[in-house]
Amino acid sequence: MLYVKVKTEDGEELVLEVEGMTEDEIREELAKAGFKIEEIEVYEVEP
């Protein structure tokens, strides 16, 4: 499983499960949803 931890400019932290997306695609999708991203951390969790 691939997850991203996202910190927004307003200090909110989100953890999202993503599969088959690049970091650029993740940033693009979050921007479309109205999030202003300060930091993204991508990590993989073994089942």
Rank of each mutant, 00 (worst) to 15 (best):
V45Q: 09
V45K: 10
L2Y: 14
G20T: 04
E46T: 10
Y3I: 11
E41W: 15
E23A: 12
V6N: 00
E38M: 15
E19I: 14
M21N: 05
E38I: 15
K5N: 02
I26Y: 01
T22N: 07
D10K: 08
A31Q: 11
E23V: 14
V6R: 00
L2C: 08
Y43P: 02
A33F: 14
E17W: 15
A33Q: 12
K32G: 04
G11Y: 02
G34C: 08
E13D: 06
L2D: 01
E38D: 10
V4A: 05
E28C: 09
E9Y: 11
A31H: 09
E46F: 14
L14W: 14
E41I: 14
L2I: 11
V42G: 03
E28A: 13
E46I: 11
T22F: 04
E9N: 09
E12G: 09
I40T: 02
K7P: 03
E12K: 14
K32A: 09
E39M: 12
E17N: 08
G11D: 03
E29D: 05
F35A: 01
E12T: 12
P47F: 09
E23F: 14
G20W: 12
T22Q: 03
D10C: 12
E9F: 11
V4R: 00
V4M: 03
K5V: 10
E28G: 07
E41V: 12
E9Q: 12
E44N: 11
K32I: 06
Y43G: 03
R27V: 07
E41H: 11
E44M: 13
L2N: 05
F35N: 01
P47R: 07
E23Y: 14
E12N: 10
L30W: 05
T22V: 02
F35H: 03
A33H: 11
M21E: 03
E23Q: 06
E23R: 11
G20D: 05
A33G: 04
K7C: 10
D10S: 12
E29M: 15
V6L: 08
G34Y: 03
G34R: 02
E13F: 14
K7Y: 10
I37M: 10
V4H: 00
R27W: 08
E25R: 06
E19R: 13
E28N: 09
L2S: 09
E38A: 13
L14Q: 03
E12I: 14
Y3A: 04
D24R: 11
G20M: 06
E28Y: 13
E17Q: 14
I37S: 07
L2K: 14
K32R: 12
E12H: 11
I40M: 08
D24Y: 11
K5S: 04
E12D: 08
T8A: 04
E25W: 04
E39H: 12
M1W: 14
M1C: 11
F35K: 01
M21F: 08
K5D: 00
